[in-house]
Each structure stands twice: as C-alpha cells, then as structure tokens.
C-alpha cells in the first residue's frame, strides 16, 4: 500500500497537538454518544421508575419522577404466581445454559464442515440450512408439537433443548460459517501439512480463532432463549416449569392492563441477570484474536 495525502496524518503531527486534538475529539464523541444513550435508554428508565410507583398510577401519572415510592410491585410480583419468582429465574437459567451448550457444540461442528471441508452437497446443505429459517414458526409449531407430544415430552424441557443440540438454529450455523470464512485458509492448511486431520484442525486451529463468533453465539442464545415466549408457553403447561417470559405474561391479562406494576417490577428483575451476563460476555468480544494475535 502507498501513502496518500490525507487530512489527518498522524505520523507528521507534533505529539502535543495530537493529544489535544484527540482529547477534544473524544470529548465530542462522548457528548454525542451520551445524548444518544439517553434517547436509547429513556423508555427503560421510565419502566424502571414506574416499577416503584403504585400500580394504578403508572398509566395515569406517567412522569419520570414518582410522587410516592413503593416496593409493593416487587413484593407482590415476586410472589404473584403461587411460588417465588426465583423458581422461574432458575428455570430460565437452566434452559438458557442448556441451549448455549447445545448451540455452541452443534453449530460449531456444522459450521466447520460447511465452511471448510470439501464434499459433494456442501452448497446444497448450506442452502438447506438457510432455507430452514425462512419458514415462519407458526406453521411449523403444530407438527413439531405433535412430534414431541408423541414422544411424551410435553411439559419437559426436552422440546426446548433437543433442537439446540441438533444445530437447528441456522442463524448461528450461518454466523459461524461466515466467521470461519474470514479466517485465512493458510492457517488450517498449515495444520493439514503438519499432519493434523480435520478434527485436530477444527479443535486446535479453527475453534480458538472463531472465538468472537462463539461469544456472539453465547450472548444471543442466552438472550433469545431467555426472552423466548411462544415455544415455552406451548410446551410447558405446569406453572412450576414456567420460564420467566411465560411467568411474566401471566401477570397481565390481555383484556385489561391490571398488573402493569408487577409486570414492570418483575421485568426489571429478570432483566438484571441478562444485563449482567451481557456486560460480562461482551468483554470477551474485546479479548479476541486482536489481543492474542495470530499464531
């Protein structure tokens, strides 16, 4: 590559001017981002504040500053469904962790084969993978339900978890395929020349290199499973098996908005683990190959 004349040429700037300029530029960035953040999170802040208002005032006195603070929504919400809300948090955690493991395991294997190995039907398989996410859930759910029902798996977590272990989340398969394809071929070719078979290559070369994709898969699987409503609603009939999203939906009646306070309070409670998880996981997005370097 050749050097071109450019507006900002760092190599030629005197050091002092550079830091000053960078600092003011950062300040500007912070300012812009700050305003943007406010816009983005306003609705959530409103929800958080509302959770501390008496239920019937949420919609009638919608201001951001609550007149009287109360923890009633949390107390009532926590016990609203005959058992402590922690039961649903644990259920959701179980399903989410199971799904993460399933997706990481099955999608990584599948993606590697589809992205790197040469075999007939490869293109067809890729197309089939994509095609399987093109049909909307609502026409698939009944045949699927009949299938799991005949296996006697209704009211267990199997219908939620088995598909994850069988690489049916094409989104993640394809995500990983795309990431693997950004990894230079030279790397695994070198491993092949060293005598590594496809399994060793996958395990020692590709898997460590696709870490950002694995982290992304982990984050999304966790959040999407946590928020998923329709599938757990249909398969989990017994209240003790409910996940958080199904439990939350039981708090408001679609025919009236009674229980909004509890809904907000418990939404907030159920948002915390997800937020904590994201805050933790996103760090791993930073410490990818960029810091360890290409080996």
């Amino acid at each position: 590559m050749t050097t071109a004349t450019a507006p900002i040429d760092s190599t030629r700037s005197p050091a002092g001017a550079l830091t000053r300029r960078r600092r003011s530029r950062d300040l500007l960035k912070h300012l812009g981002l700050g305003v943007f953040v406010l816009l983005m999170v306003y609705p959530l802040v409103w929800m958080a504040v509302s959770a501390f208002k008496p239920g019937h005032l949420i919609l009638t006195q919608p201001g951001l500053v609550p007149r009287d603070l109360t923890f009633d929504n949390f107390v009532q919400g926590w016990n609203a469904l005959n058992r402590p809300f922690s039961v649903f948090l644990v259920n959701s955690l179980l399903v989410s962790v199971g799904s993460i493991v399933g997706n990481l395991f099955s999608c990584a294997l599948t993606a590697y084969a589809l992205a790197r190995l040469e075999f007939r039907m490869r293109k067809v398989y890729l197309a089939v993978t994509l095609a399987s996410v093109m049909l909307p859930l609502h026409v698939l759910v009944i045949p699927q339900y009949i299938f799991f029902s005949q296996l006697g798996m209704v009211n267990t977590y199997f219908p939620l978890l088995i598909p994850k272990f069988l690489a049916t989340d094409a989104f993640f398969v394809y995500l990983m395929v795309q990431f693997i394809r950004t990894i230079p071929r030279d790397l695994d070719r070198a491993a092949w020349i060293d005598g590594s078979g496809p399994f060793r290559t996958f395990w020692y070369v590709i898997l460590p290199l696709m870490r950002p994709a694995l982290v992304t898969t982990t984050i999304f699987t966790f959040i999407w499973t946590w928020n998923d409503f329709f599938v757990p609603l249909i398969y989990l009939t017994s209240p003790k098996m409910f996940t958080v999203s199904v439990a939350l939906s039981s708090m408001v009646d679609s025919q009236s908005q009674d229980g909004v306070g509890m809904l907000f309070a418990m939404s907030l409670v159920s948002l915390l683990p997800v937020l904590a998880f994201f805050a933790f996981a996103q760090k791993h997005l930073i410490r990818g190959i960029a810091t360890t370097g290409l080996k």
Binding site: L94, V95, V97, G98, I100, V101, G102, F105, G152, M153, V154, N155, T156, Y157, F158, L161, F165, L236, S238, M241
Partner: peptide, 15 residues
C-alpha cells in the same frame, strides 16, 4: 458435558 447433564435432569422434572 455439564449442559448435557443439566438437560437430562431437567427432563426428569416434569410429567
């Protein structure tokens, strides 16, 4: 492994 075990256990809970 842990996940597979958890999934199995979970299944035993209901039904």
């Amino acid at each position: 492994l842990a996940g597979a075990a958890a999934a199995g256990l979970a299944g035993c809970g209901g039904g």
